[in-house]
Amino acid sequence: PAGPPRRPPPRQPAAPPGPVVAAEPALPAPAIAVPAPAPASTPLSVNVPAPAADPAVAAPALSVVPAVPRDDRQLAELRQEVAGMRQLIEREMNRFTDERLRGSPVRANALDLMDEYGFDAGLARDVAVQMPADTDPARARGLMLGLISKKLPIAPVDPIEAGGVIALVGPTGAGKTTTIAKLASRFAEAHAARDVALVTTDTQRIGAREQLYGFGRQLGIAVHEASSGTNLNQLLERLADYKLVLIDTAGLGQRDRALTAQLQWLRAAGQIRTLLVLPANTSFQDMDEVVRRFGAANPQGVVLTKLDETGRFGSALSVAVDHRLPITWVTDGQDVPEDLHRASAANLVLRLEDLRRAADMPCNPELNHAVA
């Protein structure tokens, strides 16, 4: 049987409201709780992400500290120092090599002779090193010429015999137009004049077109003009039936800004092969710059012109060796096409002495009086 219901325990009587003063000792508890949040607030203030993510705050710090440009300047200065040290070491090594080579009379004579021919010092040094120190002086010059001829890059095949489209590029006054006339005449003799077409892109200079048109009339070869890259592409499509198309480009200096646009025409066509026309009566440094500036045309060979106007033919040969440009043709006068010759290593080195002697010959007094 269920027992009688239990009664809840009696509630404790509430504290009488009278002693208010007795409750005042509990006031120090809030004083203790007030400094407690302070340590927790310290890490919160450090880890707040809002100020760091604000671009308005971060931008000034990046602009004030240019770390990357400073690194670039330091890297550029370091490269200049390294390049300077390299040049200094190379000069000292070359000086030491020259002193050692000149200890042999045969090698010393070879170095002096190649300098008179106009060869670059590096190429002359390479040739002298290969000459035995005890070489018979009577055989020294022949041995020197033989070593030079082995270094000459000669085009094994005549580029115009393969036909197609060939553009002649080169600096102002290199003789491109006359060389084109010689090449066209030589090809027409082997085939027919109707198999050759001439194109000029030099439509701005006074007299440039007239010279090529004059050669065309003399040889019975058609001459065409192209004033832009688009016109050139369209013209080449119309001339597709010709076995050989020779393009006479505008004569521009190697530092002319228009040179880039002209070379872009040739690259855009795609089907054009290029030959660099290099005047042999120019200094080694200038010819070296021309080759570097016209390198964008990707020339497949070089035509050396104006051999009759220089006594230091070794400069042109040195440039061809340094840049590994195959020599295709050489010219030594204005006659068309008699003064155009196929490149041969043996013939080129044999002409070194002839050209030097011709330059050293005194002028003919009778010719001087005739000019006066």
Rank of each mutant, 00 (worst) to 15 (best):
R312W: 00
A31G: 09
I154N: 04
E77M: 12
T135E: 03
V21M: 13
A280M: 06
P5C: 09
P159G: 02
A296L: 07
S63D: 10
R86Y: 07
N368W: 07
G163H: 02
L168V: 05
V21H: 09
R342G: 07
L183K: 04
S41G: 13
S149E: 13
R273S: 13
D354M: 10
L350E: 15
K151Q: 12
A56H: 12
K150M: 10
Y242E: 03
A56M: 08
N231I: 14
T230Y: 07
A138D: 07
Y242C: 11
W329G: 00
P159M: 10
T203V: 15
E366T: 12
P105D: 11
V65K: 05
D286H: 09
L276I: 06
M287K: 01
L75A: 15
L350G: 10
E24T: 14
L62K: 09
P55I: 04
S344Q: 10
A23R: 12
L263H: 02
A14F: 04
Q130P: 00
A29C: 08
V321D: 09
A222N: 13
L113S: 04
G295P: 06
G295H: 10
P159K: 07
R217E: 02
L350D: 15
L259Q: 04
P60Q: 05
T230E: 12
R11V: 03
R95D: 09
Q211V: 02
R209W: 06
R7T: 11
I206C: 08
A297I: 07
P1R: 03
N109H: 10
A167P: 01
L152R: 04
D72L: 15
G214A: 11
A110D: 03
I221P: 02
V336N: 01
G122S: 10
A2F: 15
